[in-house]
Amino acid sequence: MTEPNTILGDSQAYRKIVSSVPMPDPLTPEAMIHYRTEIAELLILEDIRRKVLPETVETISELHDYIDANLYLIDEEHEDAIWSNFFNWDWDAWKSYDHLVSQTNAVDNWLRSGCKGKATDHIVLPEELPPQPC
Rank of each mutant, 00 (worst) to 15 (best):
T2R: 13
T2S: 14
T2D: 14
E3K: 15
E3L: 14
N5T: 08
N5Q: 13
T6D: 03
I7S: 02
I7D: 01
L8I: 11
L8Q: 02
G9V: 10
S11V: 12
A13R: 08
Y14V: 01
Y14Q: 04
R15A: 13
K16T: 12
K16E: 14
V18E: 01
P22D: 11
M23Y: 02
P24E: 08
D25R: 14
D25E: 14
D25G: 10
D25Y: 13
P26E: 04
L27K: 08
L27R: 10
L27Q: 02
P29V: 11
P29C: 05
E30N: 13
E30Y: 08
E30W: 02
A31P: 06
H34P: 00
R36M: 00
E38C: 07
I39E: 03
I39N: 01
A40R: 00
L45K: 12
E46R: 07
I48A: 04
I48Y: 10
R49W: 04
R50F: 05
R50S: 07
K51L: 05
V52Y: 01
T56F: 03
V57T: 09
V57Y: 00
T59W: 06
I60E: 07
I60F: 15
S61R: 10
E62N: 05
L63Q: 02
D65L: 14
D65E: 14
I67E: 15
I67C: 08
I67W: 11
A69C: 07
A69K: 00
A69M: 05
L71Y: 12
L71K: 15
Y72M: 06
Y72D: 04
I74N: 02
I74L: 03
D75Q: 08
E77V: 09
E77L: 15
E77M: 10
H78K: 05
A81I: 12
I82P: 01
I82N: 07
I82T: 14
W83N: 02
W83A: 04
W83Y: 15
F86C: 00
F86S: 00
F87E: 09
N88Q: 14
W89Q: 09
A93I: 14
W94H: 12
K95H: 10
S96A: 15
S96G: 11
Y97I: 03
Y97E: 14
D98Q: 15
L100S: 13
V101F: 04
V101D: 00
V101C: 11
S102K: 06
S102T: 05
Q103W: 01
N105G: 05
A106K: 01
A106M: 06
D108H: 10
D108T: 02
N109R: 15
N109V: 06
W110N: 00
L111S: 01
S113A: 04
G114W: 08
C115D: 00
K116M: 12
K116W: 06
G117T: 05
G117Y: 05
K118M: 09
K118D: 12
A119C: 09
T120C: 05
T120R: 06
V124H: 07
L125W: 11
P126N: 13
E128Q: 11
E128R: 07
P130F: 07
P131I: 11
C134G: 12
C134D: 13
